[in-house]
Simulated scan of single mutants.
Amino acid sequence: MTPLQGLRILDLSRVLACPFASMILAELGAEVIKVEQPGSGDETRGFEPFATSPGGERVSGYYMACNRAKRSITVDLRQPEGVEIIRALAMRSDALVENFPTGTMQRRGLDWPKLREIAPKLVMLSCTGFGQTGPYARRKGYDTVFQAMGGIMGLTGERGGGPVKPGLPVADLTSGLWVAIALLAALRGRDAAGHGAHVDLSMLDGQVSLLTIAAARFFALGEVPERMGTEHPGRVPTASFLCSDGRFLHITASDQHWAPLCAALGLDSLAADPALASNAGRLAQRERVMAAMTAAMAGMTRAQAVTALDAVDVPNGPVLALDEVLTDPHIQARSAVQSFTDPVLGSFPSLRLPFRFDGFDDPQATRRPPGLGEHTDEILAQIGYDPDRIAALRAKGTV
């Protein structure tokens, strides 16, 4: 069996953070029922980038990246009959996840106090930008807003330069990981305590919780870390260096790597200085160390530097572009890139989950995302709706 086989997750979420979380759970074996708006579906079905079939049909790559392995039902939550469907599904589910603006579920009669009455063992998670309480609770926000307010953008950028956002929507993606962790924790608690729970997850809280070592510097030293590009505030050398072929190599060395690093790069004068043998000494002479290493790396190709550093076990890694990552021999050997068969596009690449199980069935093959409302009739039939009733709901636009 797969690790989460037997769990049913009712997913009312859209866009990225929560759909990413529910996809993780789906690919670990949970049954995820994705609830979408009739006619349009999750907004990301209309997001770039689009893959185009030989016949000219377009499918959103964005949607496919975060909705694999789910079942899709279309339900209009603005109609009483739609709310009735969600209540019936909640009674048959282990968990419900939603990311509507604060107050939306309450207005529709689907808030935690109402659902707890009919499904006392349900775990419900509400993911919002700023949480259910606090002065910002009703503010709107997106990934980059939470990056800005949560500190990561202020910490990221070149020396003396302005703030820079990372190349991925890290607030959305890490919030998705927090959602998955919280749901699994609450479900484990439900099994032990015999009753469900509500989880209030703020995406801003999630970003603040990631500050970790940056916050530790503030707590310990009263220091607000400056932007340092690829360098590390507390370790030297840790940085990306430009090589003679125009490529970058990232090096991270601790005290045990210092002597072999100097030998590999021909930095004899640095190796001979006892003050540089410890990280504290190198921190005190950061500019000297960095200048010498920058000059040494500029005289080597990246491949030459990798060979020299690997030979003496100094941690290093080439700074790879996306296409280089996805075609890297190690990534390929780990089967990190797989594919699923889409009914419109045919075979389409995907990224598998990073887990390898021994003791459970390993969910190795990624499964395709659902078509909009693909499983509506099937799911409604499972909760007792006959074909005539389903047809009537469809005629009314409820499903």
Rank of each mutant, 00 (worst) to 15 (best):
249 L>Q: 07
208 V>E: 08
234 G>F: 00
228 M>I: 07
241 F>M: 03
252 T>C: 14
210 L>Q: 14
245 D>F: 07
211 L>T: 09
237 P>F: 05
227 R>G: 01
228 M>F: 05
230 T>P: 06
230 T>A: 08
200 D>Q: 02
223 E>F: 13
201 L>T: 04
244 S>V: 13
239 A>M: 05
227 R>H: 00
206 G>F: 06
222 G>F: 10
232 H>F: 02
251 I>G: 12
238 T>Q: 14
237 P>I: 03
242 L>V: 08
218 F>L: 05
227 R>L: 00
204 L>C: 05
224 V>P: 06
229 G>Q: 00
248 F>Q: 12
211 L>R: 07
236 V>F: 01
216 A>P: 05
236 V>A: 04
247 R>D: 05
208 V>W: 11
218 F>E: 06
245 D>T: 10
217 R>W: 07
210 L>G: 09
229 G>W: 02
252 T>V: 14
242 L>S: 05
219 F>C: 06
227 R>C: 00
213 I>T: 15
218 F>I: 03
249 L>C: 09
235 R>P: 00
214 A>W: 00
211 L>C: 08
204 L>V: 04
210 L>C: 13
238 T>Y: 14
202 S>E: 00
213 I>S: 15
251 I>W: 11
221 L>A: 10
205 D>R: 04
238 T>H: 13
217 R>M: 14
242 L>M: 09
208 V>K: 10
208 V>H: 11
202 S>T: 02
211 L>I: 03
213 I>G: 09
241 F>D: 02
198 H>W: 08
218 F>H: 13
211 L>E: 08
222 G>M: 02
215 A>M: 10
212 T>E: 15
248 F>H: 14
216 A>F: 07
240 S>G: 14
197 A>D: 06
206 G>M: 11
221 L>F: 12
210 L>R: 11
225 P>K: 01
197 A>P: 02
202 S>I: 01
212 T>D: 15
252 T>A: 15
237 P>S: 04
209 S>C: 15
234 G>K: 03
208 V>D: 10
224 V>R: 11
240 S>R: 03
215 A>E: 04
211 L>M: 14
214 A>Q: 00
209 S>M: 14
218 F>T: 06
221 L>N: 07
244 S>I: 13
213 I>E: 14
228 M>W: 01
235 R>D: 04
227 R>A: 00
251 I>Q: 13
223 E>Q: 14
251 I>R: 10
245 D>P: 05
247 R>L: 09
227 R>E: 00
207 Q>Y: 12
232 H>D: 11
217 R>N: 11
222 G>S: 08
201 L>D: 03
243 C>W: 09
210 L>D: 09
237 P>K: 05
251 I>P: 15
249 L>S: 06
219 F>M: 12
215 A>Y: 07
241 F>Q: 03
232 H>W: 03
245 D>Q: 07
208 V>F: 15
249 L>Y: 10
204 L>G: 02
231 E>F: 03
214 A>R: 00
220 A>D: 13
199 V>E: 01
238 T>K: 09
